[in-house]
């Protein structure tokens, strides 16, 4: 049968109004606060400035190349540090947000940061406890098995893969951390005499 101009199966709105609490209270677009995307109303924002005061930077704050200058306020959590900090600063200095390299460099720095922090916190006496940080206890206290199996979940197939990836990536991180610690130790140790000169 050919399609017609009618909308199929139009519902009985009186029935819906009776059945659904609040049905249609915002049917009129005028009741919807952002139905009109842009509403110029600077007096409504709560700001009592036209040009905001500038926050003082206590460290060289990285910024997107797409900004003319640093914004009036900015976050000061986790200033760039170490090798990851050098990569992050380079990502902000050299590539705009439109460049894939900008984001790839930041993602790479994130992984380096994990390694660096692992080593640094080991020396600070706050070593990572992987099991606790994964929150693995929830598997026991929050019904890990019962929550996953026999419930028609689309993600059950990848549970072994999740475990494998988590375990292998953590081993990689720990292995790299071990190499970094050993490298650091050997840098601090007095130079060994080599057979060539002995």
């Amino acid at each position: 049968m050919a399609y017609t101009a009618n909308k199929p199966n139009a519902p009985d709105t009186r029935e819906l109004r009776a059945k659904i609490p609040g049905w249609g209270v915002d049917l009129d677009p005028g009741m919807r606060p952002a139905a009109k995307k842009e509403v110029y109303d600077p007096a409504s924002t709560g700001a009592h400035w036209e040009v905001p005061e500038q926050q003082i930077a206590t460290f060289p704050r990285e910024r997107s190349t797409e900004h003319r200058e640093i914004t009036p306020v900015f976050g000061t959590a986790c200033p760039p540090k170490g090798l990851s900090g050098i990569i992050r600063r380079a990502a902000y200095r050299h590539w705009s947000e439109g460049q894939t390299m900008h984001w790839l460099a930041l993602m790479f720095a994130d992984r380096i940061d994990v390694l660096e922090s692992l080593v640094v916190d080991l020396f600070r006496g706050k070593p990572d406890n992987f099991l606790a940080e994964w929150g693995i206890k929830a598997e026991l206290t929050r019904h890990g098995f019962k929550s996953r199996f026999g419930r028609h979940r689309a993600d059950t197939w990848r549970v072994p893969l999740d475990v494998l990836m988590l375990a292998s990536s953590s081993l990689l991180v720990l292995g790299a951390g071990y190499v970094m610690v050993n490298g650091f130790k050997s840098m601090l140790a007095p130079p060994k005499r080599r057979w060539l000169f002995g």
């Binding site: 952002a34 995307k37 842009e38 509403v39 110029y40 109303d41 600077p42 409504s44 924002t45 700001a47 905001p52 704050r61 990285e62 910024r63 997107s64 797409e66 900004h67 640093i70 914004t71 009036p72 306020v73 900015f74 976050g75 902000y92 947000e97």
Partner: peptide, 19 residues
């Protein structure tokens, strides 16, 4: 953006990105 009530797009609070 804020003056047009597009608060999620504020141009003065995210130094790291304009998006």
């Amino acid at each position: 953006f804020c003056a047009r009530q597009l608060y999620s797009s504020c141009h003065n609070t995210n130094a790291n990105a304009t998006a």
